[in-house]
Design a binder for these strands. Structure first.
Lengths: 92, 92
DNA sequence: CACTTTTATTATTATATTCTAATAATAACC
DNA sequence: GGTTATTATTAGAATATAATAATAAAAGTG
């Protein structure tokens, strides 16, 4: 199906951004809230929120609310495998 | 390094397009020339050539000339592993 | 309830991608 | 050498992405 490849492309596109790669690296350890991520990455809140929204809309991240905070976590571990492969490629 | 993530993002971006995914699927079997790919995918020659150029510039494809034809082949099999993971994700 | 904190959304601007069409470059063939 | 076939490159227009700033929404705190 051709629709499938569009979905696949969207999925890869979600990972294909330096900031979103950094977010994935950060969340690999633990869930974090938006403010926290923004501080660690030194980026504006709205920007982080948008990036998180993109990753979530593709099913890569999940979100739970916890006392006024939005805690984002990695939902799809295959995204980490993909990033691992990309890193290997670079090392070679 | 932050430069690394930019390179990683470029690599993923190269795969993050429906047409380029189709090209990867086609080349998974065998190398093909530009005209051939253009016919199978029913797309303009210049468009195909551009997509192939992108995949090649990221080290994903390689090119050999053969009697007036440019034969493109998959150079980095890790790209196939990545696409495989993306497909799995979709199936789940 | 006012106030603050946290997050999401919207509008805008700047940049990047993608496709098409046209042209150039390369190499086979007669 | 001229012609054709194949591929690459360029320019242009349309669309998509990304960052910022501003605002809205939601929820905790005093």
């Amino acid at each position: 199906m051709d629709e499938d490849r569009a979905v696949q492309a969207e999925y890869l596109k979600a990972l294909a951004h330096p900031t979103r790669i950094r977010i994935m690296e950060l969340l690999e350890q633990d869930g974090h809230c938006v403010t926290n991520i923004g501080e660690k990455l030194d980026l504006k809140q709205s920007n982080i929120s948008q990036h998180l929204g993109i990753l979530r809309s593709r099913g890569i991240l999940s979100l739970r609310r916890e006392g006024g905070h939005s805690i984002y976590c990695i939902k799809d571990p295959r995204a980490l495998e993909i990033l691992q492969l990309v890193r290997q490629k670079q090392a070679s």
